[in-house]
Design a protein around this nucleic acid. Structure first.
Length: 558
RNA sequence: CGGGGCGUAGCCCAGCCUGGUUAGCGCGCCUGCCUUGGGAGCAGGAGGUCGGAGGUUCGAAUCCUCUCGCCCCGACCA
């Protein structure tokens, strides 16, 4: 991954252990820039910063039920008093506990609290450096409202704040509908930085603003077709034909005329899933439909054990286990299925006449051939990096932890919560992923470690050195962030390093100063170069910087 | 957790298969000379528990066993 390589080469980070990195001065400076933008926008949106403990007692997690649920990525340990603890991967429990101890009346609401802190998640397989470390810097925020309606307003406020934050960071991103996952809650939205190297696939409409991740993405339903006459079911021998491709070729039908039967284990219980031959199951949708904690595809042996049929010849007719089906299957008629007998399939099968389905639902993976569910336009699959996620949590945590307040009727009510995360260290990596060339990083002005890198090309030349130092001091005095390269190195080395670390503006004092009394100003992004006299230089730097900072007023707050 | 791979100087790596001088190259580092607008050149120099433990052997970086760490692929994931 390019951002990782560049950060190592450029001295932004060094690895200490698997998924654990030290932030060096330049890397830290970029992180601080992102943090500062996050702070400003969170504060503007009415949130308040605090700092919660990283070590958390097991009791709290047992109370919420996540001590069992969270799994091995929660790093647990025992202290000298034999008390169990964990390192916080997130802070719903701690914040809910804090609020329940201190807030008791609707008149104290709403409350919106956030922190910026190092989190630890013992990832199965850390990779891509800061992109998926075990230790990472995250902003996490939590809101407490008296009613669903008020919580919805807070959620929208956070949505707007997030739009501003990522715009101000100079990132190209999309906000997408998302599955809320193990955190629970009713609705959530992910902020995805668009990059081909992203780990997540997202679906965006080419025509309207619809965007979603694969777990949530819907497609416009295919138009209803008139049901043709139902033909009599027919069993046909299909020796050795198990895969959709082999069966359809053998029967000379298209995959759209075949229904495949897949067996999943939902928390250990077998379920058959019917899917049109050319479609794929989206397991998270299945998991949500079944209300299961875990679904996994059964292996060949497990399938045989529960159905008595070898994989490849399964069908829903007289199948003993629970059967669910994708919506598209409902529209099909006279289709082919496995006959539940080795080497046989059945033709002209129909739902209702030949078998029953306990539930129809959208269970499939959307493809680029599908149409947008909100406008019917074409869809595009693209890759993204998740840098932010906002959730409407509802009352699941406040109920589990018995966090309540008295409403204006004197009734005890659970807080209506929301939670809002931003991967700070990941955002820096994502920015680099999105902004680099063959020579190195090209950092957006608002999150670059410094705005200007000043090269003194000849530290032994007194005139040049004096000019460079003068400029350096003037920059500092006038609020221009500057890093001076006065190493005793040859010019080529300094140019290469300046390119690598991606500082937006390069200011060079060298030969042209001795000759013509001018210094050189160059944009890292465009390569555009011009010269300036000493007296006008800092003013011109300021203009360039201002034009590249995303000004508050230019942000469209949607 | 399953599959594959790697640990030799600060870094990248060769040597291992087929045991046998003083363990080597490149980069980096130090000293001197030289050079100064796109990662220069010459000369000299420092730097090693060969990841760790045990074993086989006259002799182990090399063969065997165990162990630790890391990387890649997979399942998983806010």
């Amino acid at each position: 991954m390019i951002s990782h390589q560049l950060m190592l080469r450029a001295g932004f980070i060094r690895k200490l252990a698997s998924g654990i990195y030290s932030y060096l001065p330049l890397g830290l400076a970029a992180i601080r820039k992102v943090e500062q933008i996050v702070r400003e926008e969170m504060n503007r949106a009415g949130a308040q910063e605090l700092l919660l403990p990283m070590v958390q007692p097991a009791e709290l997690w047992q109370e919420s039920g996540r001590w069992q649920k969270y799994g091995p990525e929660l790093l647990r340990f025992t202290d000298r008093h034999q008390r169990e603890n964990c390192l916080g991967p997130t802070h719903e429990e701690v914040i809910t506990d804090l609020v329940r101890m201190n807030v008791h009346s609707y008149r104290e609401l709403p409350i919106n609290l956030y922190q910026i802190q190092t989190k630890f998640r013992d990832e199965i397989r850390p990779r891509f450096g800061l992109m998926r470390g075990r230790e990472f810097i995250m902003k996490d925020g939590y809101s407490f409202d008296a009613t669903d309606e008020a919580a919805g307003e807070t959620y929208e406020k956070m949505n707007r704040a997030y739009q501003r934050i990522f715009s101000r960071c100079g990132l190209k991103f999309r906000a997408v509908e998302a599955d809320s996952g193990t955190i629970g809650g009713s609705f959530s939205r992910e902020f995805m930085v668009l990059a081909d190297t992203g780990e997540d696939t997202i679906v965006v409409c080419k025509n309207c603003s619809y965007a979603a991740n694969m777990e949530k993405a819907r497609a416009m339903e295919s138009p209803a077709v008139e049901t043709p006459d139902l033909l009599p079911m027919e069993k046909i021998e299909t020796p050795g034909k198990r895969k959709v491709k082999a069966v359809t070729e053998f029967l000379n039908i298209s995959a759209k005329e075949l229904v495949k039967t897949l067996v999943y284990l939902a928390d250990g219980k077998p379920v058959a899933v019917l899917m049109r031959g050319d479609h794929e199951v989206q397991e998270v949708k299945l998991q949500n439909l079944l209300g299961a904690l875990e679904v996994e595809m059964a292996d060949d042996k497990q399938v045989f054990d529960v159905t008595g049929v070898p994989t490849g010849y399964l069908g829903p007719v007289s199948l003993e286990i629970k059967v669910v089906a994708d919506l598209e299957v409902m529209k099909m008629s006279n289709f082919a299925i496995g006959a539940n007998e080795k080497n046989f399939h059945s033709l002209n099968v129909n739902v209702g006449r030949d078998f029953e389905v306990s539930e129809f639902a959208d269970l499939r993976m959307v493809t680029a051939d599908d149409r947008c569910p909100s406008c019917g336009g074409g869809l595009k699959l693209t890759r993204g990096i998740e840098v932010g996620h906002i959730f409407k949590l509802g009352t699941s945590y406040s109920e589990a932890l018995n966090a309540t307040f008295l409403d204006n009727q004197g009734q005890e009510q659970p807080f209506v919560m929301g939670c809002y995360g931003i991967g700070v260290s990941r955002s820096v990596a994502a920015a680099i992923e999105q902004n680099h060339d063959k020579d190195g990083m090209i950092l957006p002005m608002p999150i670059a470690p410094v705005q200007v890198v000043l090269l003194n090309l000849s530290t032994k030349d007194e005139e040049i050195t004096q000019a460079a130092e003068g400029l350096y001091k003037e920059c500092l005095a006038r609020g221009v962030e500057v890093l001076m390269d006065d190493r005793d190195e040859r010019p080529g080395v300094k140019f290469k390093d300046a390119d690598l670390i991606g500082i937006p503006i390069r200011l060079t004092v060298g030969r042209s100063f001795s000759k013509d009394g001018v210094v050189e100003i160059r944009s890292r992004r465009t390569g555009e170069t011009f010269t300036a006299s000493l007296s006008e230089t800092v003013e011109r730097l300021k203009k360039m910087i201002d034009s590249e900072m995303v000004a508050d007023s230019s942000i469209n707050s949607q």
